[in-house]
Computed example of a mutant assay.
Amino acid sequence: MFSNRAQLLKRTPENGTDRETFLSLLVDEYLNSTLHDAKCQVLANLANFAYDPINYEYIRNVGVLDIFLYVVKNENNHQLLHFAVAGICNSCCDPLNADYIITHAGLKPLVALLKLENINILADTITSLLYLNNNQIRTELSTAEVVQRISDIQKSNDKRLVNLATIFLQDVCCTSDQEQL
């Protein structure tokens, strides 16, 4: 459920931790943890916080987007990648977050995830790319390699992937000539 500031204040105990501080503590926990399971749990929690628009500013302020981008750029573990791309997907519908992801070199590593076989990662990646799509990056999203990979995904047995791939090809790769048909 989406929150507003009044609801957050009402639910925060008098001596409790505010949302931004709590997210900052989660970031610290992720950065200082050496245990894989702990990193996964914290990253999953951060991705869940990215679902609520009330958290978008906090997410930018405390470095959550940086963690998501770091994982997408540097990790090979599918569990960590799944949580990071889910966090990106949850947060990139916000224009400021989308701009942050694009200007911090997030597009290329997201496109690279299209080569994976993990259905959840693929679904969140395609959805993220749809949210990030704009006139500035459309040419990067409609390269022959990306179109081929999305076309391959469109042949999946997973209906969700088929639908997302179809939407991607229609919305991102459609030229003005095709639009007139």
Rank of each mutant, 00 (worst) to 15 (best):
A105T: 10
D158F: 09
L181D: 14
Q79K: 13
R11H: 13
F168V: 00
A44Y: 11
T143H: 05
V147N: 00
A86V: 02
N163E: 15
D18Q: 08
L80K: 02
E20T: 06
S33D: 08
V64Q: 01
T103P: 06
K10C: 03
T21M: 10
Q180K: 14
F68Q: 04
L65R: 02
C93L: 10
D37M: 13
L80W: 10
E20S: 04
N32G: 04
L129C: 03
L96N: 15
V85F: 10
L96R: 14
R5T: 13
K10Q: 13
S156D: 03
H78C: 06
Q41L: 14
D158N: 15
Q170S: 08
E14K: 07
T34Q: 07
T143A: 07
E117W: 06
S176H: 12
L113K: 08
D152H: 03
I59P: 09
I54K: 04
L69Q: 07
L81I: 11
I153E: 04
N61T: 05
A165L: 05
N135K: 14
T12G: 03
N77W: 05
K159R: 14
K159T: 07
E14I: 02
R19G: 02
L169A: 08
N45W: 09
Q170V: 00
F22E: 11
D158Q: 13
E20V: 04
L69M: 06
T34H: 13
I126R: 08
I54M: 13
L110R: 01
N163T: 12
R5A: 12
F2R: 04
F49Y: 12
A50K: 02
I102G: 02
L43F: 10
R60A: 08
D152C: 03
F22Y: 15
C93E: 11
I54E: 15
K10A: 12
Q178K: 11
V27K: 01
E145Y: 07
